Simulated scan of single mutants.
Amino acid sequence: MTLVWGGEHAPEINQAVASFVASQIPGCERGWENFTTLGLIDDERLVAGVVFHNYAPEAGVIELSSASICRRWLTRPMLKAMFGYPFDQIGCQMVVLRVSERNTCMIAIAERFGFKSYRIPRLRGRDEAEILFTLTDDDWRAHPVNRR
């Protein structure tokens, strides 16, 4: 599997990864503005992507949205890139995920990586709550994936 970066230097990749992620997440049809992406290619096919968006440099916070059609996407290199970008490259102190209460798979992944959760009723509409997950740089660095 190969990691590919989008962004200003690779706008075609940036848009392709963002479109892929948006197509996999119900309610994300509008996409994002001012974003950078990370994609995972397997056998010449895009199988996973991360969109980094809503960057607030003054607070050191960025939101990320991700999706995959491959269960093997959360490899050590992917995780190092996914969290290395906000924490090491652009100096964030926290990342935020917004997840539907119905997305039990993503909820389990976020919990496994040490995210703290905050359930907000009706944030996805009248009949659906959204869970805001936060992960600080300190919690990420203490995670077992970062130990040798």
Rank of each mutant, 00 (worst) to 15 (best):
residue 4 V to M: 14
residue 121 P to D: 02
residue 147 R to G: 12
residue 125 G to P: 02
residue 46 L to S: 00
residue 110 A to K: 02
residue 59 A to D: 13
residue 7 G to H: 10
residue 62 I to E: 01
residue 66 S to H: 07
residue 64 L to P: 02
residue 67 A to T: 04
residue 48 A to T: 06
residue 134 T to A: 10
residue 113 F to T: 09
residue 17 V to P: 06
residue 79 L to S: 06
residue 12 E to H: 15
residue 105 C to S: 13
residue 17 V to M: 10
residue 71 R to S: 13
residue 15 Q to P: 03
residue 73 W to G: 00
residue 3 L to W: 07
residue 92 C to I: 03
residue 5 W to I: 07
residue 72 R to C: 01
residue 94 M to K: 15
residue 30 R to T: 09
residue 53 H to K: 08
residue 16 A to N: 09
residue 130 E to G: 15
residue 19 S to M: 09
residue 2 T to P: 00
residue 113 F to Q: 01
residue 141 R to I: 05
residue 2 T to V: 07
residue 119 R to Y: 00
residue 35 F to Y: 15
residue 107 I to K: 08
residue 16 A to D: 11
residue 21 V to C: 09
residue 48 A to E: 05
residue 75 T to R: 01
residue 9 H to K: 14
residue 83 F to K: 01
residue 77 P to L: 05
residue 29 E to T: 05
residue 122 R to D: 03
residue 58 E to H: 13
residue 35 F to W: 08
residue 37 T to V: 11
residue 9 H to D: 12
residue 143 H to A: 13
residue 128 E to R: 00
residue 17 V to T: 13
residue 25 I to G: 08
residue 3 L to K: 11
residue 88 D to A: 14
residue 100 S to P: 03
residue 125 G to E: 04
residue 24 Q to T: 00
residue 53 H to G: 05
residue 105 C to L: 12
residue 14 N to M: 10
residue 94 M to S: 07
residue 148 R to E: 14
residue 11 P to T: 04
residue 112 R to G: 10
residue 90 I to E: 03
residue 91 G to P: 06
residue 130 E to R: 12
residue 129 A to R: 02
residue 45 R to L: 04
residue 7 G to M: 09
residue 95 V to F: 01
residue 118 Y to C: 12
residue 84 G to N: 10
residue 96 V to W: 00
residue 61 V to K: 06
residue 145 V to W: 15
residue 122 R to V: 06
residue 69 I to S: 10
residue 19 S to H: 07
residue 2 T to W: 11
residue 97 L to V: 06
residue 105 C to W: 09
residue 37 T to P: 08
residue 113 F to G: 07
residue 125 G to S: 05
residue 56 A to I: 13
residue 8 E to V: 07
residue 137 D to K: 15
residue 128 E to H: 05
residue 109 I to G: 02
residue 124 R to S: 13
residue 147 R to E: 15
residue 142 A to V: 00
residue 33 E to A: 12
residue 15 Q to D: 14
residue 75 T to P: 02
residue 86 P to T: 03
residue 147 R to M: 14
residue 86 P to V: 05
